[in-house]
Structure formats: structure tokens, C-alpha cells
Nucleic acid binder design. Structure first.
Lengths: 330, 330
DNA sequence: GTGAAAGCGCTAACAA
DNA sequence: TTGTTAGCGCTTTCAC
């Protein structure tokens, strides 16, 4: 059914090495024979087998995308970004949902290495540095939303601590005196950093505060909101670890007839598409998910070409406060 | 670094064929040598190269998932379902965002065939039957959210037309007299079917109606809502082609101070996680996305084992009306 | 039961 | 400039 390099060689009346040369555009081939070979390839609708090719050249044009959960809009956007960038370069991406679990990350890293993926992009990875090193071993890798000092691995991230600080300060600037923070999963480095930012902001001001644990999912924001807002003295400002949870808080407030921003200010993180359209529109800290995905792939691609692989590039995005109704106190 | 079958053979003091036999558990191997080989494999931490293996056996333990857009929560859930099911069987999934574009679907189908994917799951595919046939050609395939009469291809779906009818009738039952439907992209078969259901429901009742085109994204629901609800005589019931757009309508209504369900009833489709938590909680038609993804993979897996591949299995889910506040008129 | 050898489709020396 | 040949790591006859 599909043809091999041999068929092409025979049809073009040349040796298989010559065909290989025109496929890979390396070595010397006279323009004339090249043309004949191309014609033969076209005629047979020939495409070289990546399997055979990979076997000898160790190149598979495949990368792994290790992500906590595609069902989270932020990660989904990142995934779209890398996928679009990858396909543009002829690369294929293997989807790996880690569910925030270190074992799953390990399992995948093994699988990817075994399948000869050429590189991996790890988003919001939970693994500790040492297991990352193991994970990474032979493959070039770039981290998204996770800073790393590991030599030879790139990262694209934004300073989540700073972002958390920005959000917190904004709440304080707007007059909040009793703050709450809904944190993300404890194994998310981004979540931890945002929380640190929160604590930093708190320390400088004379306000009371508390932290409730969430998991980055809508529901946990809603639940946390319900709990916090039914207290005797509810907070007057909430910084949620991500937008999804912030929206949950908005809904909890709505069902409790607590008005935003009159009685309560809410700010999220990520600036997902939804943030602009919820009621009231949500203030947040911007992270350009799609863009980050694209850039992560481009960095990886560059690194895959590079023999030495010793560079350690970091692309940092500035956390940007996006102010909308939800923190717009008159 | 990684070891080959040869190393194992040498260490175990046997031939490579024997090693191959114990890997694949076929052919005769004495329990004794088998044990020795296993020990050697363990000792070397050996895993066979899928590349070499695939080259000879045509098996890659890889499938393609062609999906319009992972950034859509419904599709993301389906993706999680198939990924979870796939990894459980040792399969790897290649992510293919088609963006609803037929060319992209074609491009991917070519790529997947070329890379020796063993099967593909196509979700909400837009391709016409004929190009599907071409797409499908050598590979087993299952369609999700897209019914097909193509021989040899399975599908898992729910009757979207019926679901659309259900939603529409519910609105009418609740006393709506001026209905609107926000449709999904015209190239989505599911969207078309839901719209048909809407028209069917309309025909039986004596109500006025109209259809506004959307694209299944949040923003288009919001925009459509803004347009419809600022008319002189706005509709009193809206059936959105999916939940994401329905939530957009909710927000549009909120910002226009239109009360739901007092002044307007809204119903969506899909029953995504968010639907339960928006304000007010959204009535919708249930489609078990995650489950559908799982089942799609299981069907595909079965078909991949099957030599003949001639069966045509269909797994249908009953569209289920989920009633919440957004259509709960007193 | 087990090993030697051929070959999957390709790339990369090495000759010519 | 081009063809021949030796593998890449594995599966699978076919002898023994």
C-alpha cells in the first residue's frame, strides 16, 4: 500500500542512497537526478516511514506535553499553543495528563523516553528537582510555569510571587482590611509562589488574613467561598489562586446575595478568557497561556537542534494586573 | 544508555529470539530459561524499543485524537477520558486540534497514518462522509458526537436532535412564547442536530422564534445575548447550543439587569462542570463527556484487536434533561 | 525448546 | 556525484 524508498529508487532508476539524499537534502545529488527522484516520489505519493527513520536517526519529530489537567482552561490554552507551534514545525505532541501526581509524571517520562520523544514540555510540574533531573535525563526539556535551576533546561514562566504580591497589594489599596487567599494545590509551584506573594503583601500591611486550601478547580473556589462568606465576620477581599476558583467565589457570593464589589472584592489569577465575561468582570493577573505554550515549543525546538544543549534559557513574562469590576470599589 | 535485546540475550546466555519470545509471550520457552531472561531484563532495566518493534510488527501503541479544540471544556473532558483509558492499556495519544477545519483534519489524518498510529478517535468531526472515508482508510476509527453510517467505524454519541427537542419543549412547557436559539458552528454535526431539535420543538408549538449563529465559545454566547436582550421585544427563553454560550448569555443578562429565571429562561447543552455553579445554576442537557471519551477508546481498542474490523458498533447515550434554577419559573 | 539468519524501511559510511 | 553495504533493534521463519 504505502511505498518504500526502494520503489522510488527503482522507478527513478537510481540507488536508494540517492533517494535518501534528496529526502534529507544532504549530500551531493545532481539537479537532474534530484528532479527524477522527486518526480518518482510524487508519482508514488511516497512519504518516508518515520518509524524506520527514527530507528536509525533517533529522530521522531514527537514531543511530550506533560500537563496536570487539560480540563483546566489555563492548561488547555497552553496545550493549544504548543500544539499549534509544534504542528507548524512538523512535530507531533503526545498528551500526558499527570493529574498533579508525581508517579504519573514519572510514568510518562519513562514512556516518552522509551518512545523516543525528542523532548518534553512540562507544565506546572510537581516533581521535585531531583526526580526532575531523572525525568529529564536524556531529553531536552522546557518547563512552563515552573522555574528551574536545572542546567540544560529552559523555562518560560512569569513571576508568580510578584503576581501574587500585586494582587494582594491591589486589594489592600482598595481598602480591604480582612483578606483571604484561596490557594491552589500544594504541589503546584505556581500556586506556592502566588501564596508567598500573598503573604508578602500581607506582611507589609496591617490587615488580618487567612488562607483556605483549594485545588484550582471551580468547585473548590465555590466551596471555599461558601465557607468564608457565611462566617460571622467574612473577609472583605479575596485573592483566589486562579480564575476558575475566583469565578466559583463570585457564584458563591451571588447565591448569598453578597454584592461584588460593594461588599466584597475578588481577584483571580491567569486571565482566562472567561474572566472578562463573568458577572461582574473579574480582576486578575495576566498570564498569556497560549503564548507561553507557543514559546515553550519554540525554545524546545531550538534546543533540540542544538548539539550542546547546555544553554539555560529563561523567558519571563511580567505579571500584569488586569483591573475589572470585581475590585472596582467606588 | 538504554539496553537492547542483544544485551539481555548475552546476559541471560540465550539467543535474541528467545528473549523476543519471552517479551511477547509467544512461542515455546522453557520456564527455566524464561526466568533467566526475565531476570536479565530486570537487571538491565530493559524495555524494548517501540520504534524497532513497530517497524517490523506495525504496532505502535499510539492513537490519534482529532478534536476541534481542547480549549473547549466539553472536548477537554472527552480528551481526559480517552487519555485515561488509553494509558491504562499502554497506549499513547497524539493530540490533534482541528479547529473545526477540514483541511486540518485531513492533514492530521495523513500525519497519523504516516506515523503508524493504530487508530483514531475523531470528535465532533466536520469532514464530509467521503473525505472521512478517505481519512479512515487503513485505520480503525471511532467517532464521538458524530453519527456515521460508514462501514467499519464505530461511534459513541447521543441523540443531539432529541436533546435539542427536549430542551426546546422544556422552555415551552415553562411558558416561553418567544424563543431564541444560539447555534454552534455550522460545520459541527452535533450543533446542526441540536438546531434541528429546536426547530422540531418549535413546529409543534405556536411560538415565535429565531436563530442566532454562535461558535460554541463563551464570547459568542455573550455577544448573542447582548444583541437579543437589547431588542424592543427580547425573547423570554433561550436555548444555547452549548453550556459555554449559555453562560455567556447569563452574563449578558446580568449586566443588563435582566433577571433569570424571572424575565428570561436559559438552557444550555453538555452539562459541563461549570453549569452547576454559575449563577443561577444552569439547566442543560447532559452529555457524559469523560465517559464518552473512555468508551470511545475502549471501542477503538477492541476494534484494533479485531482482525476483520467489519463490525459497526454504536454506543448511544440518552440525552438527559438536567433542570436547575435557570429555567425554574415560579 | 532454542538459535541463526533474514528483513521491516531507512541513514550513513565507504567505495567507486 | 552516485551505488553498495552495514547496521538501527526488533520479530519471525526455519533449521537444529
Amino acid at each position: 500500500m504505502t511505498h518504500t524508498i526502494k520503489d522510488v529508487a527503482k522507478l527513478a532508476g537510481v540507488g536508494i542512497a540517492t533517494v535518501s539524499r534528496v529526502i534529507n537534502q544532504n549530500g551531493y545529488v545532481s539537479p537532474d537526478t534530484a528532479k527524477r527522484v522527486m518526480k518518482a516520489m510524487a508519482e508514488l505519493d511516497f512519504t518516508p516511514s518515520p518509524l524506520a527513520r527514527g530507528l536509525v536517526s533517533r529522530k521522531t519529530a514527537t514531543i511530550g506535553l506533560v500537563i496536570p489537567d487539560v480540563a483546566n482552561p489555563f492548561f488547555a490554552e497552553v496545550a493549544r499553543g504548543t500544539e499549534d507551534a509544534a504542528i507548524a514545525k512538523g512535530f507531533t505532541v503526545i498528551l500526558c495528563n499527570s493529574d498533579w501526581k508525581a508517579e504519573r509524571e514519572k510514568m510518562y517520562s519513562k514512556l516518552l523516553r522509551q518512545k523516543w520523544a525528542e523532548g518534553v514540555i512540562a507544565v506546572g510540574s510537581r516533581s521535585s528537582e531531583s526526580s526532575l533531573r531523572e525525568l529529564i535525563d536524556p531529553l531536552p526539556m522546557v518547563f512552563v510555569d515552573r522555574f528551574t535551576m536545572l542546567p540544560g533546561s529552559d523555562s518560560v514562566w512569569s513571576d508568580n510571587k510578584k503576581g501574587g504580591l500585586l494582587a494582594t497589594q491591589h486589594l489592600i489599596d482598595m481598602g480591604c482590611r480582612k483578606l483571604a487567599h484561596i490557594s491552589g494545590p500544594t504541589h503546584s509551584p505556581a500556586s506556592i509562589a502566588r501564596q508567598k506573594g500573598f503573604l508578602l503583601g500581607i506582611k507589609e500591611a496591617n490587615v488580618s488574613w487567612e488562607i483556605v486550601k483549594g485545588d484550582f478547580r471551580y468547585r473548590s473556589g465555590y466551596d471555599a467561598g461558601m465557607e468564608l462568606l457565611t462566617r460571622d465576620v467574612p473577609p472583605d477581599g479575596i485573592f483566589a489562586g486562579n480564575d476558575l476558583m475566583a469565578v466559583g467565589i463570585l457564584q458563591a457570593a451571588a447565591s448569598l446575595h453578597i454584592r461584588i464589589p460593594d461588599d466584597l472584592l475578588v481577584i483571580g489569577y491567569d486571565n482566562i478568557a472567561m474572566a472578562e465575561y463573568v458577572a461582574p468582570p473579574l480582576s486578575t493577573v495576566d498570564q498569556p497561556a497560549y503564548e507561553m505554550g507557543r514559546i515553550a515549543f519554540d525554545m524546545l525546538h531550538k534546543k533540540m537542534q542544538d548539539e550542546t544543549r547546555e544553554s539555560r534559557n529563561v523567558r519571563e513574562f511580567e505579571p500584569l494586573l488586569i483591573l475589572r469590576e470585581s475590585t472596582n470599589r467606588k
